[in-house]
Design a binder for these strands. Structure first.
Lengths: 343, 343
DNA sequence: ATGATCTGTGTAAAGGTTTACATCATCTCC
DNA sequence: GGAGATGATGTAAACCTTTACACAGATCAT
């Protein structure tokens, strides 16, 4: 209507011929306002095109309607779908999403801590496996927070994610069912909780299959493509080859597959490979990658739902919230190559 | 320090024994404050751990330090890297990023319009090819805005992206140089500016190569994998096959490649394929996809830089800001199959 | 010595909301 | 009919900043 500055609650009050308090009540607690008055107010709102000034509201309430989402790398193929779940859930409750990526630099994390301190975000979603605020992490007064996708190592922060142990177990079980016994685990890590849990699933599966611990092949890795390729090279140097590679995530699996192909091997005829996550690329690899699917959107939705509960005063849950991962069978797994059957 | 509510400017003033006005000035216009005073204030800030309350600041200034980024689909493989560029540039200027995804639903777009009206964002980055606010788009009073990745169809909004014509031209030129003359363009669209420009590049390239207009094969498409596969099926029905497919983007190219492989053809021996964008998958396809790379991070950075200029009062540029796309040669292109040489 | 200029600081208003408290009219019950 | 409860609305304070304006003291030119 007017070309000048946006309508305030006072404009509405004037047109509806009531006080600003009544307008505010008509909006937030309509049951406390007479029907006739509410009608007038609503008309006035329609006429003016009034929208509550979020800044003023947040200032008065001492709490914003923004949620800060911090990830080490926005480009992580796992991130975007989780973000979709987070965003949908937040928006449908009137919250907005603020994003930050730290690139694993504690200095950058600190800048986002400032965001929190200056009241710009009411809650925090952590995509990172650790608190990203450097040495101030401990003393920092954090708002209600929820970790997602990867449990937070150092913070006693509620976590929503997939059951890593169960997921890994499904992958080993498939390999075992196909006849594999020499299964390498690529991407072990003591500092990344998600990874060490996947390792647990691996061990549990091989325990059940009766494969003794000394026959297991474990290689470290940080979950990058490069780490997969490197681990493979180490194995070829040592000359202790498995018949199957169970990789801690899809990136690692991609690295392993690239390495195997570079050496002229066929997957799955010569070696089987499994991943974890089911990133978009997994479908398009040749062969397509058998992996464990993270229900990413659902994780995001559940995490945000939990955070919103915390914001409205609920107690943090005692346990982690673990969703069930599905085994996605594609073409990178078959029975072991003949030379492994001989033994 | 204190476990209670965060320090305000008044706490700082009390400790430094000055007025709150002086504290504010010491922070924002230090040159207007005596050295000795500034020192006291800085100490007091250190003691209290004071951070400016962004809400109060924005309210007073009538302008927030948030930029709203709206995309139809956060999961778009092109999006995340652009976001990295946007975020880095914004953060280094004290701005934060608010994100919204509309899933092409004008209703959802409207909800973000409310965000803008309520002063929560000072500026707008549009990842969409059109204004996402439905029929209110025209009357809406938008804050300074910049379109990115795809020119905005209906809004006179400054645009930062890649030179689509030049990029497409590089792709055709490669195909022509390899000896192709029958080159199909898959993914034409009159409503998507980026696509029609790529078509222009295609036409320009074939003009230069002396391929008459009636020998060109043009198929519509909306840029999804499915659209690529569908277009391919149409061609096989018509039985007017080209020797090469120049696809409007990588997704389309992936669709075409899937279709060709399903029919048992070899790429590039039987058909060459090019894409556009260089999404992460492009590397991992078999064969890997020859395509045009979008400098995504650079685009994001440039777009945000422009937006920040607009926010500080600069005039919108007369022209679009176009970055140069690079041709990325991989393995999906070779000379035409023999049967095409015969004619 | 007088007035003008400059420097540094304080006072107070404004920005738009929400909400405790006060007020007033109406209704209920004896 | 009057006391008290109930319901609807208004008044004003508070949230925390920034900044125009006022003021005081020092410096300078005459």
């Amino acid at each position: 209507m007017s070309t000048s500055s946006p309508a305030t609650i006072e404009d509405v009050a004037r047109i509806a011929q009531v006080s600003i308090a009544t307008v505010s009540r008509a909006i937030h607690t309509p049951e406390k306002v007479a029907n006739s008055t509410r009608l007038k107010v609503n008309q006035a709102i329609a006429i003016t095109g009034y929208t509550t000034n979020a800044m003023a509201r947040s200032l008065r309430l001492g709490r914003s309607n923004m949620i800060l989402v911090v990830a080490p790398d926005i480009g992580d193929p796992n991130f975007s779908n989780i973000l979709v779940g987070l965003e949908n859930e937040a928006r449908s409750h009137g919250y907005g999403i603020l994003i930050g990526h730290t690139q694993n630099d504690p200095q950058r994390g600190l800048e986002y801590l400032k965001f929190l301190n200056s009241n710009q975000a009411a809650g925090l979603i952590l995509f990172t496996g650790i608190l990203p605020f450097g040495h101030q992490s401990m003393t920092a007064r954090l708002p209600p927070s929820v970790g997602v996708f990867e449990p937070v190592y150092n913070g006693g922060i509620p976590y929503v994610g997939v059951d890593d142990i169960e997921g890994a177990r499904k992958a080993v079980d498939l390999l075992v069912a196909e006849g594999h016994r020499k299964i390498a685990f690529i991407g072990d890590s003591r500092t990344r909780l998600a990874y060490s849990r996947r390792r647990q699933g691996y061990d549990a599966g091989l325990d059940a299959a009766g494969v003794p611990a000394h026959e297991r092949i474990i290689l470290e890795g940080d979950g990058t493509i490069e780490s997969g390729r490197l681990a493979l090279e180490q194995l070829f140097m040592r000359d202790t080859l498995p018949s199957a590679f169970m990789c801690v995530n899809d990136q690692t699996a991609i690295g392993v597959m690239i390495g195997l192909r570079a050496r002229g091997y066929d997957i799955p005829a010569d070696f089987s490979v499994t991943g974890f996550d089911d990133v978009p690329q997994a479908t398009f690899m040749t062969p397509s990658l058998t992996t464990i699917r993270q229900p990413r959107t659902a994780i995001g939705k559940a995490a945000m739902a939990l955070l919103l509960e915390l914001l409205s005063g609920a107690e943090p849950p005692d346990d982690e919230i673990l969703l069930t991962p599905d085994l996605i069978v594609r073409n990178s797994v078959s029975g072991p190559a003949r030379r492994f059957l001989k033994r």
